[in-house]
Design a protein around this nucleic acid. Structure first.
Lengths: 117, 117
DNA sequence: TTTTAATATTCAAATATTTTGATATGCCTT
DNA sequence: AAGGCATATCAAAATATTTGAATATTAAAA
C-alpha cells in the first residue's frame, strides 16, 4: 500500500493543474455560478466548460445543485481557497526571484550580448 | 494576456501532480537530501529520481547545492509545506465524506443490494 | 590519466490529457 | 407532444506526460 496517499494527493493537484480549472475556482470564490455564467465569463464553448467542471466534480472539489434546467456549482471545501491563496504567495515570491534573475541577466547582457540569444 | 497568471499557477500545480514528486517534497520537509538518499528511500532507479527532481527544479520548487559529486536538494519556499498541509486537511475532510458515503451506501445495500454493482 | 561514483540528459514507447465537434438527455414552454 | 434551452457525454485527433533503457557529464580517487 505505500504511496497510495501520495497518489491521492497527486490526483488532487492534477485537478488543479489546468488554467481553465484554476480560473473556474477563482470565479467560484465569489459564490456559486451556473454553467452558462462560467461559459460566458470564460469565453469557452459549452462542451469544454462542462468537461472541465466534470474533472473538478470527479475529484470532489466542486458540487452541483440543480434548479430546473440550470446547474449551479460551488466549491465544496473552502480550504481550497486558502490553498489557492498560498499558491498565489508562492507565486509572488517566485516572481520576485525571477525579476532578480532577469535584471541580473540584463547586466550580464551588457557585458556579453551573446548570452541572451 | 488574460489567463497567463492562471497558466503559471496551473504549471505549478502540475509539478505537484505526481505521487513521486509529492513524496519527495514530503521527504524534503525534514531538510535537504541527496539524490542517492532519495533514491534509496523511494526505491526508484537513478534516472527516474533525477528526472522527477528536474521537473521540480524546472518550476523553481526545489534548489540544489553541490558538494563534490553529490547534489543536495532543498525546497526553496517553505510555503510549499503549508500548501501540502492544507492539501492534507482537504484530503482528510474528503476522506470523512467518503467514509460517510460508503457507510450510507452500505446501509442502502442492506435495503437493496442491487445498488452496489 | 584511467577508473569509479553520483548525477543528468536523451530518446522512444506507452499512457494520459486536452480539444473539438457531434450527439444525447432532461426540463421547461407553448 | 414539439421545440428550444441548458447541460452532459462521447469519440477521435492533437498534444503532453510518464517510464525505462541507454548514454553523457562531472568530480573525486586510485
Amino acid at each position: 500500500m505505500p504511496g497510495s496517499l501520495q497518489s491521492f494527493k497527486a490526483e488532487f493537484f492534477k485537478a488543479l493543474s489546468h488554467p481553465v480549472r484554476i480560473k473556474m475556482l477563482e470565479l467560484l470564490a465569489d459564490g456559486e455560478k451556473s454553467v452558462t455564467e462560467l461559459q460566458t465569463i470564460l469565453g469557452l464553448d459549452q462542451s469544454g466548460v462542462s468537461q472541465q467542471l466534470s474533472v473538478l466534480r470527479a475529484k470532489g472539489i466542486i458540487v452541483s445543485r440543480k434548479n430546473g434546467t440550470t446547474v449551479y456549482y460551488t466549491v465544496r471545501d473552502p480550504l481550497v481557497f486558502q490553498l489557492l491563496e498560498i499558491a498565489r504567495n508562492i507565486f509572488n515570491n517566485h516572481l520576485i526571484d525571477t525579476k532578480d534573475m532577469l535584471s541580473q541577466l540584463e547586466t550580464e547582457k551588457e557585458t556579453d550580448p551573446a548570452l541572451i540569444s
